Simulated scan of single mutants.
Amino acid sequence: MNTFEVFMQSISNFVMESGFAQLNLGYIVMIVIACVLLYLAIAKGFEPLLLVPIAFGILMVNLPGVGIKAYPANGEPGGLLYYIGMGKDLGIYPPLIFIGVGAMTDFGPLIANPKSLLLGAAAQIGIFVAFLGALLLGFSPEQAAAIGIIGGADGPTSIYTATKLAPELLGAIAVSAYSYMALVPVIQPPIMKMFTTAEERKIKMDQLRPVSSTEKVLFPIIVTISVSLLLPSAGTLVGMLMFGNLLKEVGATSRLADVASNALMSIITILLGISVGASTGADQFLTTQTLGILALGLFAFVIGTGSGVLFGKLMCKMSGGKINPLIGAAGVSAVPMAARVVQKVGQKENPSNFLLMHAMGPNVAGVIGSAIAAGVMLSIYAN
């Protein structure tokens, strides 16, 4: 070959090895999805701390030829996201996230109003509705159990359950769970308004009683012992949640609580988010099975929100109109997003209404409830 032919061959090889030459419709669709999620996170402010890492992970893994998630082969090391993703695949990141969540959570409203537990439990109905729906669609019991947890709007719990029961569905389940968590401000208000009247939304609730520091310290210890003895399979998630909260409530460990709620939480959120996004390769994600999971997740979230509000209406009637049924919507596990939505919707009807602290009771109860529901599924279906 002469010099010109060598040069042209080099150009041809360069073109054929470029990402443009390897693009197909699947990659293009996933790149568009990633860009839409980035737009929603950056321009519209839909939970950017969650959506930006997830969307960028989707983008990176669907740029052909980059090899950022390549598997080790022939003595060659894997790509960066292959190793980062092991923390997700092995179920390490979700419990660590729960430490941070616990360190940022105030269980005072739940302790002050234990009836909030009922609202948190009612909102978990969506989990079991999605489970039954998945069975009807032909998923195996293990897959259906993992899909059902999406209804709790709890991303870490959904991931943890999927790694144990249906790792082949992890990408679709994780993206579905985190997407609906991020879209709480869009999905929940219409449902809340559908099931309540304007007069009910205007109800002002009495101020919660003060909770002593002793109660706040004893609560995570008692919950950890009780849940772990009753349902050992839920002990890891609930235990890490309560450990983080104990760090917060014990004054001598405030430095550890600060690390857990800030540095640790931020680091694990980045690693978990980008590895969740990286589990959505076009060839695995763009399937009818994924569409079914997304549909079931949305349906479960709607049912969970609706059942929480309806149980709130029941409690409103039984209390003689002292409980605003909107707080039932916060029974899903999206902390503190769901509680903020309750506050926003209630304040639209009555500007002097402050429901945030009342909504935090069902909200944190929902976190515990979804972890317990996951424990039930794991105890039945895990090998």
Rank of each mutant, 00 (worst) to 15 (best):
A182L: 00
Q143F: 03
K202N: 15
Y381S: 06
M205A: 09
T157H: 11
A172M: 07
L247E: 11
E5G: 13
P325I: 06
D206F: 11
L51N: 01
P185R: 06
I222N: 09
Y71P: 12
L165P: 01
V6Y: 06
A41E: 06
I221P: 01
F299H: 07
G126K: 05
I327H: 03
I150L: 01
I11S: 06
D154P: 02
L136M: 06
I187A: 08
S307H: 08
T157C: 14
A198C: 04
Y82P: 08
G26I: 13
K193E: 12
M377N: 10
G331C: 09
D258H: 15
T157L: 09
F46Q: 09
V238P: 01
G67E: 11
T236C: 15
S279W: 01
I187C: 06
E76D: 15
T214C: 04
Q347C: 09
V175P: 00
V335S: 01
I84C: 12
S254K: 09
V376Q: 03
P220T: 15
I303N: 00
I125T: 15
M181A: 13
P94E: 14
M318C: 08
L110E: 02
Q347V: 10
M240G: 07
G366V: 02
F107V: 14
A130Y: 00
G304T: 03
M8T: 08
P210D: 13
I28W: 04
L218Y: 10
G87M: 05
Y180D: 09
G375M: 05
S379C: 07
I380S: 13
V276T: 11
P72I: 14
V36E: 04
F195L: 14
G277I: 02
G297E: 05
S379T: 10
L90R: 13
L80P: 02
I54Q: 00
N74L: 15
A260Y: 01
A373E: 08
I327C: 04
T280C: 10
M181Y: 06
V259C: 03
R209F: 02
S275L: 05
I293R: 00
L291H: 04
E200I: 07
G251E: 13
F20K: 11
L169E: 03
L37T: 13
V184K: 00
T157D: 14
A144H: 02
G277W: 00
M30F: 06
I221S: 07
F14N: 13
G306W: 05
I58E: 02
A234I: 14
